[in-house]
Design a protein around this nucleic acid. Structure first.
Lengths: 109, 109
DNA sequence: CAAGTATATACCGCTTGTGGTATATACCTG
DNA sequence: CAGGTATATACCACAAGCGGTATATACTTG
């Protein structure tokens, strides 16, 4: 459990990130909105914090968690070459057009 | 093992995708370049194919694997809201500037 | 058809992540 | 300080993914 990819592989963690994208939340907030047990929330937040996805500040007994950008940017960068692939590649468009012309494709063979 | 995220959580699978982004490859090609055992390659390719990341065509005893765009596009779409977050949010820049001005921040408290 | 090549799959043991329950810690309020 | 609230953590059991080894399948060539 170290790579950005493993962190976001967990559905509950993605849900938490989804909540935090709009505004910061306490553990209890997340617990209620996602209907997860409190320890589960805390444990996932621990993982997210260790991986730099979130940071927290203390408010009395509460902890306010908010999103951090870096790890997600890292993911975005990993995606870059593939983005190049599917934009450069006209295949998707070709296949789309093929579907619009349901005439049997004649293979040169 | 169903979500796009779980698929790419595995480092060897990401390596395979990385190879395929430039051109199609046979199982043996991948096996040699990534120095993985043949069964391991086949098994990861199976997972990738089931998830729609790759497709294969037959060439005698060989199988030619090539990349497909859709699942990675799905990942890209998931990322969109967060991208909005870190671009709209000037915080990263602010923090950066703070680091350049190491003067103690005075809290209003 | 025999031997070789290329790939897929079955089986197995190990490791690791996950959630649950219980408990610890810290803070707040009367 | 007692009781309540908010969060973190330890421990445990279970499930699932991973790689290895062995084997099956399919095709090719002499």
């Amino acid at each position: 459990m170290q790579s950005v990819f493993e962190i976001i592989a967990e559905p509950n963690r993605r849900a938490i990130l989804g909540l935090l994208v709009s505004s910061q939340q306490t553990v209890g907030d997340i617990e209620r909105q996602l209907r997860m047990s409190q320890p589960t929330v805390s444990k996932h937040l621990r993982v997210l914090r260790d991986a730099g996805f979130v940071e927290s500040t203390v408010d009395a007994q509460r902890r306010l968690y908010r999103l951090k950008a870096e790890p997600l940017q890292e993911l975005d960068e990993w995606l870059a070459p593939f983005r190049a692939f599917w934009t450069a590649h006209v295949d998707a468009l070709e296949r789309h057009l093929d579907r619009m012309h349901p005439k049997k494709k004649r293979k040169s063979k």
